[in-house]
Simulated assay, not measured.
Amino acid sequence: MKILQLCSRVPYPHKDGYSIAVNAISKGLDKAGHEVRIMSLNTLQHHVNYDDLPQDYINEFKPILVDIDTFVRPVPAFLNIFSNKSYNVVRFISKNFKEELFELLSNENFDIVQFDSLFTTPYLETVRKYSKAKAILRAHNVENLIWDRRTTQEKNPIRKWYLKLLSERLRKYEGKIINQFDGIAAISDIDKKYLIEMGCKLPIDTVPIGIDFNFLNRKFPEPEPQTLFFIGILDWMPNVDGLLWFLNDVWHIVHERFPNVKFYIAGRHYEKIAAKLDYPNVIVLGEVEDAYDYISSKEIMLVPLRYASGTRVKIIEALALGKLIITTSVGVEGIEAVHSENIMIADTPLTFADSISRCLREPDLCKNISNNARKFAQERFNNDIIIDNLIRFYKSFLSQ
């Protein structure tokens, strides 16, 4: 098969959840003997210079990058209020991208065009017009669900009204566009359920994020005792909200109980919130060179998400590394790990602090959960098996 992946931002370097998830499919399909091309919007926020791409990546996927400014701008955002369009989506519409896509489809034939995220769906019309390929939506998240949950957390009445407007328009758009594809590859069973509840009538399959476990075949640092850590991109609002919730509402409880425990924070784009991270025994590292070494070098991973959708890639990778993870019901969504068996789940400041306390005081519990976590991840998220299932899903459309 020949597959074109359309991406809402350049899936390189492979350091954040979106890039890792996209790359798992690209690499997996390539490894299975299929031809893959990547065409991506190149946002200012996550801009990548073409010359910085590795030559083997260029040779494999022949990527096409099209610059676009998707930053929220006050005037367009205000004017959008008086339209009926989703501002979340229209920011990703680019005339240049449509022209480049037309050029590509006019010169090459594809069996499958995979739309990696809702924000590439404005280009479905172009694909339908100039290609006979089957169009598959790779739903990394149920986007309107993220905004619904964010609206619920907002206390400011004006912001709450605006977030509700964005959420409702996004839900209307998402509910309409999903039935215009040939099929949907949902990232988890829970997301599949949400999409069906939204009215999806198409063939829909669960295609989890796959992990190439070859990354485990090297030596990792020993963990520093009595350490907690967070890792995540810090211009993604669910990460920022969850981290600040933990620092404001949970950390003081933990620090009083364990004054020597350190909490490390790693992640790109932390500068805008740096002043809000100034707490006792909190060490801000910014972007780390090797995420796996960083994860291995600390004891307990914290993922305090209060709103999101999809699946947290870093949780899957940390499970594979045998890390003890404390997260929320939202954080574990789509992963189906079990509380006290292969992960710890807590949703309130006190229960979150109590979970940390229990793990710090009971090393045998930590060891047992860590061993179970490693086994669980390797059984459930093996990329070779996931890609085999995705190929079968693709071929079911080509045989029609």
Rank of each mutant, 00 (worst) to 15 (best):
A135N: 10
Y394E: 06
I184Q: 11
L285T: 02
L195R: 14
T327E: 15
S94Q: 09
I391L: 05
G17E: 03
N84P: 09
I265M: 02
R306D: 10
S370H: 08
Y57P: 02
F181W: 12
V36D: 08
K193H: 14
A353E: 02
G17Y: 04
L104V: 12
T348K: 07
F381L: 09
L360A: 00
K219T: 07
L390N: 06
A308F: 02
V207R: 07
G199W: 01
R374D: 03
I112T: 01
P221Y: 03
F352G: 14
L165P: 02
M198N: 12
I177E: 02
F352Q: 04
L79V: 13
I231A: 06
Y162C: 13
E336Q: 15
P63R: 00
K15T: 15
N59Q: 07
S117D: 11
G17F: 00
D235K: 05
S188L: 14
L4H: 02
I204L: 11
K272I: 05
L163V: 10
E362F: 08
I300P: 10
I211D: 03
P122T: 09
T152V: 14
G242D: 10
Y279F: 12
N88H: 03
S309P: 06
I146Q: 11
T227P: 04
R358N: 12
I64G: 03
P11G: 04
D116W: 11
I25W: 13
I190Y: 15
A308S: 08
K395Q: 03
D384E: 12
R128T: 11
P304C: 13
L243D: 00
L137Q: 02
S40Q: 05
D354L: 09
Y50A: 08
D290P: 10
K85I: 11
F376Q: 04
I315L: 12
R91E: 05
K132Y: 01
S340Y: 13
V261T: 06
D148Y: 10
H252R: 00
D212H: 06
K375A: 05
V284T: 11
A139N: 09
Y292H: 02
D249Q: 11
R37A: 01
F82W: 00
D52K: 04
L145C: 03
K85Q: 13
K272N: 10
N96E: 14
L285K: 07
E108Y: 03
V284D: 02
S370E: 06
K31F: 00
L6I: 13
L285Q: 01
L41T: 08
K262D: 01
L29R: 14
F213W: 07
I20R: 12
L4P: 11
I253H: 10
